[in-house]
């Protein structure tokens, strides 16, 4: 049964991708991209990849279509001009060559889903058997993410921080109204969205509450710092969309967001440095407390908090940077 769903979802994915190649309008492409995200999240669910499905859901529904919509709002919904024949031939050739190389790659692959493939027999069994004893949390993905390969996650948080710095650097200069200053121009939106604002007032607290649930539920079920940060940020973005940029800038001022992003990374980094100062290798939590297993719990809890703060504040800062380009205020 599971295989059937898996095959149908994958063929829907390919259909969406083909539709994306053919479709012309930009908003239609954005909608198809969000459909693509939905389908890949469902595929990850059938594959048993719980945390990945959660992240894809939060990112694919909450953030990436919105960023695309903001860009299209700034640049206008121009259709794409049809491209010349020469470019088509060149790209088809390149695609065929890479495709052939990929197919050569798949020839000697171990069959899909076989429990004795090398991937499942060399390093992975250690995590499944030992993480219960050594780290003591049920969600093995979180224990691998936050303890065995914590350095990867630190690199990951830095990637998000770099993206925030990069977007602010690129967009801050062009908006002659600095992102720091509050924007007093109200959006001339004609009829206020009373219905949307009322429902927003009801739903947004639940979104933020759910973000905190996901943050602290990371050890026992799907969830963790990334997902919580993205959900929190989409709650803030929803608030910004409904009540206008100036109001949300008063609630969470942009400079505070930039400082919070740096603090989040520092929380993560300094936990590692603390274990460094105690003589243990970097990011080794077992020295943070006397009993190693509780020390792992403390370590994972703190770094997940650092990740959550960084991701939430960076995505909000990116939203501010984009929204600043958009306000047709009295410029």
């Amino acid at each position: 049964m599971e295989v059937l769903i898996d095959i149908v979802l994958l063929s829907l994915l390919v259909a969406t991708a083909v539709a994306l190649v053919m479709v012309r309008g930009l908003i239609a492409s954005i909608m198809l991209t969000s459909v693509y995200g939905l389908l890949s999240a469902s595929f990850f669910v059938t594959m048993g990849a719980v945390d990945v499905a959660f992240t894809e859901a939060a990112v694919g529904a909450g953030v990436s279509p919105l960023l695309l919509l903001f860009t299209v709002a700034v640049i206008g919904r121009k259709e794409r001009a049809p491209e010349g024949g020469a470019v088509l031939v060149k790209s088809l050739l390149l695609v065929v060559v890479t495709g052939a190389l990929l197919i050569v790659g798949t020839l000697d692959m171990p069959p899909f889903g076989s429990p004795d493939a090398p991937a499942q027999t060399h390093v992975a069994p250690y995590y499944l058997q030992q993480s219960g004893a050594e780290i003591g949390i049920p969600n093995v993905v979180t224990s691998v993410l936050a303890s065995y390969r914590a350095y990867d996650t630190l690199g990951e948080v830095l990637v998000i921080f770099t993206a925030g710095v990069a977007v602010i650097l690129i967009l801050a200069s062009s908006s002659h109204r600095g992102s720091a200053r509050l924007r007093n121009a109200t959006v001339p939106d004609g009829s206020p969205h009373t219905i949307l604002q009322v429902v927003g007032k009801i739903l947004i607290p639940f979104i933020l509450l759910f973000a905190f649930y996901v943050q602290f539920h990371g050890e026992y079920g799907p969830g963790g710092g990334f997902q919580a940060g993205v959900i929190f940020a989409s709650g803030v973005i929803l608030y910004g969309l409904l009540f206008g940029l100036p109001t949300v800038c008063r609630v969470l001022p942009p400079p505070v967001m930039e400082v919070l992003a740096a603090l989040g990374v520092l929380i993560f980094g300094l936990t590692g440095v603390m274990s460094l100062l105690n003589g243990a290798p970097f990011l080794d939590y077992s020295v943070l407390a006397d009993d190693p297993v509780t020390a792992q719990h403390i370590g994972i809890m703190v770094i997940e908090l650092g990740v959550g703060i960084t991701v939430a504040s960076v995505i909000t800062a990116i939203y501010y940077a984009f929204a600043n380009q958009l306000e047709p205020g009295p410029n």
């Binding site: 219905i195 949307l196 429902v199 739903l203 639940f206």
Partner: peptide, 11 residues
């Protein structure tokens, strides 16, 4: 939540 959000989305 679905009963709250889908009608709003349609609206």
């Amino acid at each position: 939540f679905v009963l709250f959000s889908s009608p709003t989305a349609s609206h």
